[in-house]
Design a protein around this nucleic acid. Structure first.
Lengths: 219, 219
DNA sequence: TAGATTGTTAATCGATTAACAATC
DNA sequence: TAGATTGTTAATCGATTAACAATC
């Protein structure tokens, strides 16, 4: 038995899990500009976050202690964050729904860069069968269970903003999918061992509108 | 001086602001099925949330007290949540980027149903100028400032998963936009009075992968 | 060296959960 | 009526922020 893996060395809050990518993409940008070192203090200022929080989370994520007066080596820190975020593991992902959203996702090459490999999309529209978008084929949704099992795929993206989503979720779960990214507004009922992450665009827009109003009222 | 408006009758946590839409879409589904009343307890069970929390938040959002043994009238509760989420105010929104993601958004009619009116998309690709998607025109990004000012538009969606995002954000801010929904991975620097809401698809997928791993480790 | 920045423990703050009386 | 469900106050829990000694 090997020792316990990286996970759960320390407790990770949901909030922290959402901040790490923000640090990551910001620092990545600095690297692009040729920077070599970054201090937690600078990141906090730039991203308008609390300095102590950033410091603490850098300490948790980093494999190497930061140096007073200098900060963290950007290359090392980015690698550590990649490990933390799992960008180094390659995960294969399927998309259900080859409509406009599904197509947009197939063309989005951000996935590949961060360890996600979109292998195929599934749809029930025969007109789409056999088409490829960005070299990713669209297959008949009837083939999904076999495909998922044969390739041992764990993750799926539901890109059907309309109906069928629960039905599709059931299909995915039965096929063995363990994680679903859900772009629909509907709540998905899944067994205990399956994880769902929702992206609700309209709800996010509504939250934005609400925050705007709050800001205006507070002046 | 008029009395303080609806906002800030009670403190609203970010977490609560993300839960209300979940309640809303679930209850909406019940309405579709012909239900008339719903109890906070049932919602909690269905959505796997803490019953006390749901009860408390229903009490905060609802204009009418729930009735013991019966719960809340669905019609009333939905309306109250619509007010809370601002689905009754009509907000006009522009999209910057008429690529695949932008097109998918133009075709997404969830917006209209919840009070958001996509009025146009802007791009710098002349081939797209004059085209319409779902009756929404694509205009030259050079026309953006004038358009925004003339129509007094407050909200914009940045659907350029690639570069240019900071540049575009600056343009939007200068034109008078007060809220930005940002689909790019880049952190946007904006003035104090502008609100940004990020949707980072890759980061969300990474969080999903991490949650999956955690669940597997815990067994 | 001096002091900017680190890592970490302790204090505060806010959100979640428990408890319970009120009531349809 | 009885009891399921409500609204609300108090207790707990967790996350954020403050404080400060360590150090490159």
């Amino acid at each position: 038995m090997e020792p316990k893996q990286s996970s759960q060395r320390y407790k990770i809050s949901k909030a922290m899990l959402e901040r790490i990518p923000k640090y990551y993409y910001y620092i990545k940008e600095l690297k692009r500009r040729g920077e070599e070192y970054i201090s937690s203090a600078e990141v906090a200022t730039a991203l308008r976050l609390n300095a102590i929080q950033v410091r603490k989370e850098f300490a948790e994520v980093s494999s190497v202690a930061g140096k007073p007066r200098i900060g963290f080596r950007i290359d090392t820190l980015l690698k550590d964050m990649e490990v933390f975020l799992g960008y180094n593991n390659i995960d294969e992902v399927i998309i259900v729904g080859a409509g406009r959203l599904g197509q947009a996702l197939m063309f989005y090459d951000g996935f590949q860069k961060y360890g996600f490999n979109i292998v195929a999309a599934f749809d029930n529209n025969p007109k789409l069968f056999g088409m490829t978008f960005n070299e990713k084929p669209v297959l008949d949704i009837k083939e999904l269970p076999q495909f998922v099992q044969r390739m041992n795929i764990q993750m799926a993206i539901i890109a059907l903003p309309k109906q069928y989503t629960q039905e599709v979720a059931n299909l995915l779960v039965d096929a063995g999918i363990k994680g679903i990214l859900n772009f629909s507004q509907r709540f998905l009922e899944v067994p205990e061992d399956v994880v769902v992450q929702d992206i609700n665009i309209v709800a996010t827009l509504a939250i934005l509108a609400r925050n705007m109003k709050k800001k205006q009222d507070n002046r």
